[in-house]
């Protein structure tokens, strides 16, 4: 029985299968790239949004928060925080950190200036408008 199960055939299936499914993946990726503009509304990515994303990254926000469900699970989801809290609240919140309440989770103060705060809000606003197939399930994220 084992002679009819050859290593050469197993190897060919590995290489063939890998190439085949990677090509399929590339095909789906190609289609996704065609669909994305109507879902991510890239026409709304202003300079302010771009700067906001940069601030998001250089303050390592993803180290505590999730954004569209990805990141750390230590602090609230921010993909929809613009809808949940609104721009002015977000700015005030970032500025008032850390709360210093003993025993509670603390967020550092990043000393952002007015412009940077606006950029941050612009980025979170744009993010909240991406079509995420109705995720998160509710406003609490």
């Amino acid at each position: 029985m084992s002679e009819t199960f050859t290593k050469a055939m197993a190897r060919n299936i590995f290489y063939g299968g890998a190439v085949f499914f990677f090509l399929l993946f590339l095909g789906l990726t190609f289609d996704t790239m065609q669909q994305l503009p109507s879902r991510d509304h890239r026409e709304n990515i202003t300079d302010s949004v771009v700067r906001g994303k940069h601030i998001w990254e250089t303050r390592n926000c993803i180290g505590c928060h999730t954004l569209m469900g990805e990141g750390a699970y230590f602090a609230p989801e921010l993909g929809n925080v613009y809808v949940r809290r609104g721009g002015p609240f977000i700015k005030a919140w970032i500025q008032s950190q850390p709360t210093g309440v003993p025993g509670r989770r603390q967020m550092p103060n990043f000393n952002l200036n007015e412009q940077e705060l606006d950029d941050m809000v612009a980025f979170l606003k744009w993010t909240s408008e991406v079509n995420t197939n109705k995720w998160p399930p509710n406003i609490e994220g």
């Binding site: 590995f14 299968g17 890998a18 669909q35 879902r39 469900g69």
Partner: peptide, 21 residues
């Protein structure tokens, strides 16, 4: 072989809620 057959397209389980179709 099974790993790649399932795992490559399996990437799709990360593409549910991040703006992808």
């Amino acid at each position: 072989a099974m790993t790649l057959i399932t795992g490559i397209i399996g990437t799709g389980h990360h593409y549910f809620w991040i703006g992808t179709p």
